[in-house]
């Protein structure tokens, strides 16, 4: 199929018809699955190894985390709306939605920081037990991913303010969006497997 497309073009762009960057991002996301998979497995293995410290059901505040989850889910929606706006050539709306996405991400990370401090106060330190180490490492690692996403979104906003983020560069927004949705998907996993199955 790709070959046929190739023959038809005078100057073939790429063999798959997809840009290198987009292909690279998907390849990278495939790799990330193994990374988060390893951390989630570590958590699962240790979820009951509390070493006399607080257990998951002692500390988890499901209503609070649920709100965080909704916020992150909502940010995925605003992310696609940003891309959609840019594809229509609406740079202002694109900027607004990008900024909203970053804000929602920041709310999520803020919620996580709040949650961590609350857990700390209840005696769940990073070194308390295999459970606590695994929990903080997994959710912290996810939080770092969200934070990196926020930085990238804010950079996009700055680029957009300089007028350099036009319809033709929608793919940049699309790629950062894919990363953002991936981080959201990971949270869908974490929220269910870590929080709800307690």
């Amino acid at each position: 199929m790709a070959e046929a497309a190739l023959d038809a073009h005078e100057h073939p762009e790429t063999n798959t018809g997809m840009s290198n960057s987009k292909l690279a991002l998907w390849v990278f996301l495939g790799s990330e699955c193994l990374l988060f998979g390893g951390l989630i497995s570590t958590y699962l293995l240790y979820r009951n190894e509390t070493n006399g410290g607080p257990t998951a059901s002692d500390v988890f505040e499901i209503p609070f985390t649920s709100v965080s989850s909704f916020v992150l889910l909502l940010s995925s929606l605003t992310m696609v709306l940003a891309l959609s706006a840019l594809r229509r050539g609406d740079e202002t709306r694109n900027r607004i939605w990008l900024l909203t996405t970053a804000m929602l991400g920041a709310v999520f990370v803020g919620g996580q920081v709040y949650e961590f401090t609350a857990f700390l106060r209840e005696g769940l330190g990073f070194t308390t037990s295999p459970f606590s180490s695994a929990f903080y490492t997994l959710t912290g690692f996810h939080g770092v991913h969200v934070s990196v996403g926020i930085v990238m979104l804010m950079s996009l906003v700055v680029v957009s303010l300089k007028g350099d983020l036009s319809k033709e560069r929608a793919e940049t927004v699309e790629l950062i969006g894919l990363y953002w949705h991936f981080v959201d998907v990971v949270w869908i996993f974490i929220f269910t497997v870590v929080y709800l199955t307690v």
Partner: peptide, 10 residues
């Protein structure tokens, strides 16, 4: 971190 500490149950 307690990932490999047998005494803590790892």
């Amino acid at each position: 971190a307690q990932f490999f500490n047998v005494a803590a149950g790892a």
